[in-house]
Amino acid sequence: MTGAKKEVAMQARRDHTLKVIKGAKPGVPGRASRRRVVPRQLPASVAPIEDLLERLDREPVEDPAEVDDPAEFEDPAAGDDPASVDGPPQGAGDAGAAKAAGDAPAGRRLLVGLLVAVLAATLAAAGTTGHRWYVHQATDQARQEALAAAKQASVNFVSVSATSVDRDTQRITAGATGDFKEEFVRGQSQVRTAVVENRVDSRGSVLRAGLVSGDRRRAVVLVAVDATVKNVKAPQGRLSHYRIQLDLVRDQDSGRWLVSRLQFVG
């Protein structure tokens, strides 16, 4: 072996581990430069060293200063983790829970709003129904009271006796109002004279009565009355039949039904 070849062989053994630095950044004052050492195992049979050095010089070599944090790289073993394959991304459950929690108050407000609307509609319907029921009941009661007052007024009008004429006429006046009361008061003295002179004794009873029309303030009633009338010409009495129509109004102060008009019909 020539001296040159020996020198090349010795140099090859010394450079079995090659140090290649490429793309190093300029050094910072006060800070040691970091270098990446890339070991390269040479094959047993090598091409000329010059060719190898030229090829290695063309390969890019990473500078440790430019390498990102290894924690940011995905771990190849993570693909085998069932949780990473089937489960949601980390934080997805918390995000869903947070969204559900955020939507919960809105959902409750909507539910409360619907309940309030339904309750208001129910109360309004109940109020309307209750008012109608009250009006119906009040009107029906007023009609029944007017019917009863008309029956009593009819009996009072045909029931007069010479022995109690003042009391009888006073009872008729107390149950009258308006035009009927004025007319009866004007002729009251004549009625008293005729009853006393003819020794009249009349007693009446209601056969039938019907409401023609009526509300809580006014009513019209028809009453069929029989009366047994005794006088100087018929001391044994004589049966008479009357049909009387009475118009009644309800007194605002006392609430009593009073006769405003009385006439014989039929």
Rank of each mutant, 00 (worst) to 15 (best):
G127N: 02
G255S: 05
Q170T: 12
V37L: 12
A104S: 07
K19T: 15
L42K: 05
P82D: 08
P105C: 07
S189P: 04
V85I: 14
A176K: 00
P29S: 14
L53G: 06
G107A: 12
L53V: 14
K233T: 13
Q41E: 11
V232N: 12
P48M: 13
G30W: 03
R216W: 04
V212I: 14
E72C: 12
S202P: 00
S154T: 04
G23H: 11
D63Y: 04
Q236L: 08
K99P: 02
R108N: 14
V200K: 01
Q141M: 14
A32Y: 08
R108I: 15
A117F: 07
A146N: 00
V160T: 07
F180H: 01
V232S: 11
A95C: 03
T139D: 08
A124I: 08
V135R: 07
D81C: 04
R208I: 04
A97P: 01
A146I: 00
D179N: 15
D15L: 12
P76M: 04
A83S: 05
A176N: 02
K5F: 14
H241F: 11
S254H: 10
K233L: 13
G187P: 03
M10N: 10
S254F: 08
G79F: 15
P76E: 06
Q190C: 05
R192F: 10
D215L: 05
V112I: 14
L262G: 03
E7K: 15
V37H: 10
K25T: 09
G187Y: 15
G107H: 08
A227G: 08
L42S: 06
K151H: 06
D201W: 08
F73Y: 15
G30D: 02
Q141P: 01
A24L: 06
K99M: 10
A234I: 06
A71S: 09
A4N: 07
L18G: 03
E66R: 15
P76I: 06
F73S: 10
R13F: 13
G113Q: 04
V158H: 12
G237H: 02
P39N: 10
R250N: 03
E7R: 12
